[in-house]
């Protein structure tokens, strides 16, 4: 099983929980979700307990992540969008920490499961729809009718806009899921290749240097991807939330 690149995505129950025939077991995935949330909360709370006017290193990291997300949200949806800040900051920190925990060998990557990323994407889209409808009523549907389009083209353009809107949760979730999945599979394949070559004797050892270098390089790349995908998810979330605030674009 050591060389199976798919095995790392396998869920197994740690505590079996069955509610009315539905399997709600506390699995390794749930464990890493809890680890992710726990580490995010610990990091952000412990680093800011000093409430230093001049921040120490930890506090300055917490402030940096706060301001990074705040600036992203403010630049795409203005000051009004700041009411969504807790949601956007939670999403960013959750995805970033889940991705980073997944970088440890033998650790489980929460975001490598489509259902998790899809649930997060649906959370964003439902927030957009519900807040949009509550604030603007039927005017919210103005997002499907872009301004300055000739009357004759409106049905066609609206159809495209609707399809684009419906595909948002899919593209949002698949992008994150596929990146994490593909990255971890590739990493595992190259790492397994080192072991396989290593078993072939001295010639294999020399040959194994190549996949080893590849694994090191890919690890660095995966750290970049881990951050980048969290950022991309956040930026797109901010853009979608902007629709809920300013539907007539």
């Amino acid at each position: 099983m050591a060389n199976d690149p798919i095995h790392q995505f396998q869920l197994f129950p740690i505590v079996d929980i069955d509610v009315a025939g539905v399997d709600l077991s506390f699995t390794n995935s749930a464990l890493f979700m809890a680890l992710t949330v726990g580490s995010v909360v610990l990091f952000l709370v412990l680093s800011t307990t000093g409430r230093g006017l001049v921040p120490n290193r930890w506090q300055s990291m917490a402030e940096m992540s706060y301001e990074f997300v705040a600036n992203t949200l403010r630049s795409s949806s203005g000051t009004e969008g700041m009411r969504f800040f807790p949601l956007v900051f939670s999403l960013f920190m959750f995805i970033l920490f889940a991705n980073l925990w997944g970088m440890f060998p033998y650790f489980f990557t929460v975001t490598s499961h489509i259902i998790v990323t899809f649930a997060l994407a649906m959370l964003v889209i439902l927030t957009v729809v519900i807040v949009g409808l509550m604030r603007h009523g039927t005017h919210f549907f103005g997002i499907f009718i872009p301004g300055g389009v000739p009357m004759a083209l409106i049905p066609l353009v609206s159809l495209i806009e609707i399809i684009s809107f419906l595909s948002r949760p899919i593209s949002l979730s698949v992008r994150l899921f596929a990146n994490m999945l593909a990255g971890h599979i590739t990493l595992k394949v190259f790492a397994a290749f080192i072991v396989t070559l290593g078993g072939l004797g001295i010639g294999g050892w020399l040959g194994a240097v190549l996949p080893l270098g590849m694994t090191v390089a890919l690890t660095a790349l995966e750290f970049l991807v881990a951050f980048l995908q969290a950022y991309v998810f956040t930026v797109l979330t901010c853009m979608y939330l902007n629709d809920a605030i300013h539907p007539g674009h």
Binding site: L11, V22, L24, T27, A30, H113, L120
Partner: peptide, 19 residues
Amino acid sequence: PPFDTTTFASQLFWLAITF
């Protein structure tokens, strides 16, 4: 594994709690 629907309920349940 990511397409194993039998694990979806548990993942959604724990994601809802933790998130």
